[in-house]
Each structure stands twice: as structure tokens, then as C-alpha cells.
């Protein structure tokens, strides 16, 4: 019985914990200095590779910088990157999906074909193109990750638009002689976009992960930025000696992804309840 109770309690605490984590994250984004007094950029070579201790809760990195402090200061850039990239991806996805779904047979075929091409085109090549033409920095990274992950989202949204387009209520609206514009605005957009809210919240973490993998390849955010993905990829070489350099930034990313997923699902439930 106690186990069952615990399970129920867990179910309720899940979203609460997620919201709490996201709240802390928000504080870190807006005013990191509230959470820590240390300077995220100040190097201290003699204190390099210190394991977690009371003084450095998450240990220090290869330049003796406090990892917890850098995680807190890195939240802004990492989340900004994640949010902008997912926004770009969804913008592309929605535009293409609406064109393909409502632009007639040719457009539908064209978009199907485009999705196939986009899937075949590696993000790495896009990242190269962006970094070579736009220089190094966050903007090329956002563009590369945003465009690179657009294929998957386009496919999802496109499917949604097609399903809504052929749904009875839309056919009914059409039969009633409503203008296409009105149909899009009143029926298709709301129904096709609703899942996007959930996708967007879950996608933020995914985008941070993607940018981290570009950091691995030496195309990430420029130093000394405390971007989580860059921190994680720098830790890789020292995994045998300093596991904390890899573990904690990774945890920050995973927790962010989990928290946004949990909150995203809560939003979804509420929206579903509101819709029915």
C-alpha cells in the first residue's frame, strides 16, 4: 500500500519538481548573479581539475573555473540557443507544411520530396556552411541546428495538416462555403499548431543536444562561453580523470529536457481538456 501511495505522490510531484527546476533555470537566465557569487570566466590554473567538494560543489574544469557557476551562467546562452533554434525549426516546418497541405497536389508532392531531400542532408554539412559563411558564433549555430532539425518537424506538422485537412469538420466547413482563408485560420491552424506547443517545449532540450554535438566537432559556441554543450564536449578528453566535467553539464541538459517534456505534457493535457 505504501508503495502505491508513493507512486501516486510521485506522479503529483513530477510536474511540481519540473516546474521548480524550470523556475531556477529562469532565475539563472535572468539574473545568474543571484545564484552564485563566483565569476564564471575567472581562471585559476592551480585549481584545475578539482573534484566536487564543499568549496566547488560540481568540481572545477581544466582552467580551474567552478563548474556549477558556469552551468548557472551558461543557462542563458544555452536556453537562448535552444529556444531560437526550435523557433526557427518550427517556423520552417509550419510554413512548408501549410504550403504542402493546402497548395494543391503539386505542392503536396513537392513538399514530400523536399522532406526526403532534407532528411538526406547532414546537419554537419549545414553547420559547416553556416560557420564558413557567417563566421563563428551563436547565430550560425542556431541556423545550422534550426534548419538541420526542420526536416523531422516538417514531417510531423505536415502529417498533422493533412489529417486536419481531410477531417470531417473541415470538409463540412468547406461544404458550407467558408473561404479557404477562414478555414485555415479557424480550423487548420489551431488544430495543426496545437501539437506544436508540446513539440516546442520538448524540442528546446533537443536543440541544446544538437548544438553540443557540433561542439564535439569543433564547431560550437566560441570560448570562453559557458554554453552547456561546449562544456560537455570539453570534458570528453578528461573523462578518465575528471568525470564531473562531463557528468554535470550532461545532467543539466537531460534535466532540462525532462522538465520541459513533463511540463509540455501537462500543457498538452490541459489543452486537450480545453478542446474537448
Amino acid at each position: 500500500m505504501t508503495r502505491l501511495k508513493r507512486a501516486i505522490a510521485l506522479r503529483e510531484t513530477g510536474p511540481a519538481l519540473a516546474a521548480f527546476y524550470l523556475a531556477i533555470l529562469l532565475v539563472a537566465v535572468i539574473a545568474p548573479q543571484v545564484l552564485t557569487q563566483t565569476d564564471p570566466m575567472a581562471i585559476a590554473p592551480r585549481a584545475a581539475f578539482a573534484p566536487p567538494s564543499l568549496h566547488h560543489l560540481f568540481g572545477t574544469d581544466e582552467s580551474g573555473r567552478d563548474i556549477l557557476t558556469r552551468l548557472i551562467y551558461g543557462a542563458r546562452q544555452s536556453l537562448l540557443l535552444g529556444v531560437s533554434a526550435i523557433a526557427l525549426a518550427l517556423l520552417i516546418a509550419t510554413t512548408l507544411a501549410l504550403i504542402g497541405g493546402l497548395g494543391g497536389r503539386m505542392a503536396e508532392r513537392g513538399i514530400r520530396w523536399l522532406i526526403d531531400v532534407m532528411f538526406a542532408f547532414p546537419v554537419l554539412v549545414l553547420a559547416l556552411l553556416c560557420s564558413a559563411t557567417l563566421g563563428s558564433g551563436i547565430v550560425p549555430l542556431v541556423i545550422a541546428v534550426g534548419i538541420g532539425s526542420a526536416a523531422g518537424y516538417t514531417r510531423l506538422v505536415f502529417g498533422q495538416v493533412l489529417a486536419v485537412r481531410d477531417a470531417p469538420y473541415v470538409e463540412a466547413a468547406r461544404a458550407l462555403g467558408h473561404s479557404p482563408f477562414k478555414i485555415i485560420r479557424r480550423h487548420i491552424l489551431p488544430n495543426a499548431v496545437r501539437p506544436l506547443v508540446v513539440l516546442a517545449t520538448m524540442g528546446v532540450g533537443q536543440m541544446v543536444v544538437w548544438s553540443a554535438s557540433l561542439s564535439f566537432l569543433g564547431l560550437g559556441a566560441p570560448p570562453p562561453a559557458a554554453e552547456w554543450g561546449t562544456m560537455l564536449s570539453m570534458g570528453r578528453d578528461y573523462i578518465a580523470e575528471a568525470w564531473w566535467m562531463t557528468l554535470f553539464p550532461g545532467l543539466a541538459i537531460v534535466l532540462t529536457m525532462l522538465a520541459t517534456t513533463v511540463v509540455g505534457r501537462a500543457i498538452q493535457l490541459r489543452m486537450d481538456a480545453g478542446a474537448s
Partner: peptide, 9 residues
């Protein structure tokens, strides 16, 4: 939700 490369490391 696990990033593949993190898991890999």
C-alpha cells in the same frame, strides 16, 4: 531524452 553522445561517454 538522453543525449546519445553523453550516454556514449
Amino acid at each position: 531524452g538522453l543525449p546519445q553522445f553523453w550516454l556514449a561517454i
